[in-house]
Amino acid sequence: MALNTPQITPTKKITVRAIGEELPRGDYQRCPQCDMLFSLPEINSHQSAYCPRCQAKIRDGRDWSLTRLAAMAFTMLLLMPFAWGEPLLHIWLLGIRIDANVMQGIWQMTKQGDAITGSMVFFCVIGAPLILVTSIAYLWFGNRLGMNLRPVLLMLERLKEWVMLDIYLVGIGVASIKVQDYAHIQAGVGLFSFVALVILTTVTLSHLNVEELWERFYPQRPATRRDEKLRVCLGCHFTGYPDQRGRCPRCHIPLRLRRRHSLQKCWAALLASIVLLLPANLLPISIIYLNGGRQEDTILSGIMSLASSNIAVAGIVFIASILVPFTKVIVMFTLLLSIHFKCQQGLRTRILLLRMVTWIGRWSMLDLFVISLTMSLINRDQILAFTMGPAAFYFGAAVILTILAVEWLDSRLLWDAHESGNARFDD
Rank of each mutant, 00 (worst) to 15 (best):
A2H: 10
L3C: 08
N4Y: 07
N4G: 05
T5W: 06
P6V: 06
Q7M: 05
I8G: 04
T11I: 06
K12V: 04
K12P: 05
K13H: 05
V16F: 07
R17Q: 08
A18G: 07
I19H: 07
E21C: 05
E21T: 07
E22K: 06
E22F: 05
L23G: 09
L23T: 08
P24E: 07
P24I: 05
R25W: 06
G26M: 09
D27W: 08
Y28P: 10
Y28G: 08
Y28N: 10
R30Y: 03
R30G: 12
P32Q: 06
D35G: 04
L37C: 06
L37E: 09
S39D: 07
E42M: 05
N44H: 07
S45N: 07
S45I: 08
Q47R: 06
S48F: 12
S48C: 09
S48T: 08
Y50F: 12
R53A: 05
C54N: 00
A56N: 07
I58E: 03
D60G: 09
G61F: 12
R62T: 02
R62C: 04
D63I: 14
W64G: 06
S65A: 04
S65H: 05
L66E: 12
T67C: 12
T67S: 04
R68L: 08
R68F: 09
R68P: 02
A70I: 15
A71S: 08
A73E: 13
F74K: 12
T75N: 13
M76R: 02
M80T: 09
A83D: 03
A83N: 03
A83P: 05
G85S: 06
P87C: 08
P87K: 10
P87S: 06
H90L: 04
I91Y: 01
W92F: 03
L93K: 00
L94C: 01
L94T: 01
L94R: 00
G95H: 06
N101G: 05
M103E: 09
M103C: 05
Q104V: 07
G105K: 01
I106V: 11
W107T: 13
W107V: 03
T110Y: 01
T110R: 14
Q112T: 08
Q112M: 13
G113N: 14
D114N: 05
D114E: 14
D114W: 08
A115R: 03
M120S: 03
V121H: 08
F122K: 10
V125A: 07
A128V: 09
P129T: 07
L130R: 01
I131S: 06
V133H: 03
S135F: 03
I136C: 10
L139Q: 02
W140Q: 11
W140C: 15
F141D: 00
G142C: 12
G142H: 02
R144K: 13
G146I: 03
N148W: 03
R150C: 05
R150W: 02
V152E: 02
V152L: 01
L154Y: 02
L154F: 05
L156T: 08
L156A: 07
L156C: 10
L159W: 01
E161S: 10
W162G: 01
W162M: 02
M164V: 02
M164D: 10
L165H: 13
D166L: 15
V170W: 15
I172E: 05
I172C: 11
G173F: 10
G173W: 01
V174T: 09
I177Q: 02
I177W: 10
K178P: 00
K178C: 00
K178T: 01
D181K: 01
H184S: 05
H184D: 11
Q186T: 10
Q186K: 15
A187P: 14
L191M: 15
L191S: 13
S193I: 02
F194Q: 09
V198C: 13
V198M: 12
L200R: 00
T201R: 15
S206C: 15
S206K: 15
H207R: 08
N209R: 14
N209T: 09
N209H: 10
V210P: 15
V210R: 15
V210G: 15
L213G: 15
L213V: 08
E215Q: 14
R216L: 11
F217N: 11
Y218G: 09
R221V: 11
P222Q: 13
A223I: 12
A223C: 13
E228A: 11
E228W: 14
E228R: 14
K229L: 12
L230D: 14
L230A: 14
R231Y: 11
R231M: 08
L234Q: 11
C236L: 00
G240P: 08
G240W: 12
P242V: 13
D243K: 10
Q244A: 11
R245M: 13
G246E: 10
G246T: 13
R247S: 13
C248G: 00
P249E: 10
R250E: 05
I253P: 04
P254K: 08
P254R: 01
P254Y: 05
R258E: 08
R258P: 07
R259Q: 13
S262M: 14
Q264T: 05
K265T: 04
K265I: 03
K265M: 09
K265C: 05
W267M: 14
W267S: 15
A268P: 04
A268N: 06
A269W: 04
A269H: 03
A269P: 08
L270Q: 11
L271G: 11
L276E: 05
L276V: 11
L278Q: 14
L278F: 12
L282V: 12
L282T: 13
L283C: 10
P284T: 07
P284K: 10
I285L: 02
I288F: 03
I288V: 11
Y289E: 01
Y289G: 01
L290P: 02
L290G: 01
N291R: 15
R294G: 04
R294W: 03
R294N: 03
E296V: 08
I299A: 11
I299Y: 01
S301T: 11
G302M: 01
I303H: 01
M304S: 12
M304E: 14
L306V: 03
A307W: 15
S308K: 12
S308M: 15
N310S: 13
A312G: 13
A312W: 15
V313Q: 00
G315Y: 15
I316G: 11
I319P: 08
I319L: 15
I319G: 15
A320E: 00
S321N: 01
I322A: 11
L323V: 11
L323N: 03
P325I: 01
P325V: 03
P325F: 01
T327R: 00
T327D: 01
T327Q: 09
K328H: 00
I330K: 09
F333H: 09
T334E: 11
L335W: 03
L336P: 05
L336W: 08
L337D: 03
S338A: 14
F341G: 11
K342C: 11
C343N: 15
C343G: 12
Q345W: 15
G346F: 15
R348E: 11
R348M: 11
R348G: 13
T349A: 11
T349C: 11
L353C: 14
L354W: 05
L354K: 10
M356P: 04
M356V: 13
M356K: 07
R362H: 04
R362L: 02
R362V: 04
S364Y: 00
L366M: 08
D367C: 00
L368W: 01
L368E: 09
F369Y: 09
V370K: 00
I371L: 05
L373Y: 04
L373V: 02
T374F: 01
S376M: 12
D381E: 07
Q382I: 09
I383P: 00
I383Q: 02
I383R: 02
L384T: 02
F386G: 00
F386H: 00
M388N: 14
G389W: 00
P390L: 06
P390I: 06
A391F: 03
F393P: 09
A398I: 05
I400N: 09
I400Y: 08
L401S: 11
T402M: 02
I403D: 01
L404T: 06
L404K: 08
A405G: 13
V406A: 07
W408L: 04
L409F: 07
L409D: 01
D410S: 00
S411R: 11
L414R: 00
L414A: 11
W415A: 09
W415I: 08
D416A: 12
D416E: 11
A417R: 05
H418V: 13
E419G: 09
E419R: 11
E419K: 12
G421K: 02
N422R: 10
A423K: 15
F425K: 14
D426N: 14
D427T: 02
